[in-house]
Structure formats: structure tokens, C-alpha cells
Amino acid sequence: MKMIRAIIRPEKVSTVLSELADANYPAVTKIDVVGRGKQRGVKVGDIYYDEIPKEILLMVVEEDAVSEVVSIIMKNAKTGEGTFGDGKIFVSEVEAAYTISTGKAEL
């Protein structure tokens, strides 16, 4: 199993979640966060914003679903060609998962 962490713009979350659910990937954890990327924030006029609002979507999927899920997120989270701040997707291995109510291991 793989963990997918997608950091995306807040205004793109509902579209991404809708498309994931339509593709039969409804299980997602969403967290409101702030941060900045390589561009180190944004300057608008005289005001500098170094903490930009973002959302993190967390999902655990089977290994063979990773490319489809990543593709759905990328297609629906992108605002334009080469736009800074659209986000980042991280994929990592899940060693174990347990259901708290039953104590069962998922792997």
C-alpha cells in the first residue's frame, strides 16, 4: 500500500475530491495548513505573504492505483501551465495500517 500526500490550493479541493470520489477513491483525510514552497511566499504590492493557505489530502491506496490517483489530482489541482503554488504530491510506502475499532491489520 502507498500513502499519497497532496498539498494543493484550497479552491481546488472540492473539484479534486469530487473527481476522486467519481473514480471510486472516496477515502480521503483533508487538513488545512499554511506554508510556502521554493518561491518563499508571495509579494502583492508592498505586502509579503510567507504563509500561504493550502490543503493536504492524505490517502492510502493499493500500489496499482497510485498512478491513476496522482493523475486525477494533478489534472484537477492545476491552475495553469507553469503556475507556481499549485502544489506538490508525495508518495511513500505504508508499512502497516490498523483499524482501531477492530484491531485488525490492513496489510
Rank of each mutant, 00 (worst) to 15 (best):
G35W: 04
K30P: 00
K104V: 03
V28M: 12
K104M: 09
V61W: 06
S71F: 06
G45E: 02
V91Y: 04
A96P: 00
F84C: 01
Y48D: 05
A21N: 09
M74I: 10
V44W: 07
K75M: 09
P26I: 08
K78C: 10
T83W: 00
K38Q: 13
D64F: 12
I89R: 00
G41A: 09
A6G: 06
K30L: 13
Y49E: 08
E19M: 12
E81T: 14
E81A: 12
L107P: 04
F90G: 03
I100R: 07
S18A: 06
I73R: 03
F90S: 07
T79D: 07
A21P: 00
I8M: 10
G35A: 05
T79V: 12
G82L: 09
P53V: 07
S67L: 13
V34F: 14
K104T: 09
A105I: 12
I7P: 04
V60L: 02
K12F: 06
R9A: 11
R40W: 02
S14Q: 13
M59I: 00
D46G: 08
D64W: 00
S71R: 14
M59D: 04
V70T: 08
M59G: 01
G37M: 07
A96H: 10
P10Y: 08
G85V: 08
E106C: 01
G85W: 03
T15R: 13
K30D: 09
D46Q: 09
V69D: 03
G87V: 04
I52P: 01
V70R: 04
Y48W: 08
K2M: 11
A21R: 14
G82I: 02
D46N: 12
V60F: 11
E19S: 08
R9D: 02
G82V: 10
L20F: 02
E19K: 15
S92P: 00
E55I: 11
Y98K: 14
V34C: 09
V61S: 03
K88H: 08
E19W: 03
E51T: 03
S18T: 13
M74S: 13
I56T: 06
L57I: 15
Y49L: 14
V66Y: 02
F84K: 14
T99R: 15
P53H: 09
V94C: 07
V69N: 07
I73N: 04
K78Y: 03
N24F: 14
K2N: 12
I73H: 02
I100S: 10
S14K: 15
K43A: 11
P26Y: 10
T79S: 13
V94N: 05
G37A: 05
A65M: 09
V69T: 01
L58K: 07
F90N: 03
Y98D: 03
A21I: 05
I56W: 04
I7M: 12
T29K: 09
I100E: 10
G87H: 05
E93G: 00
V66F: 03
P10E: 07
D50F: 08
V28P: 01
A65H: 13
M1D: 01
V70K: 07
T79G: 14
P26D: 06
T15K: 14
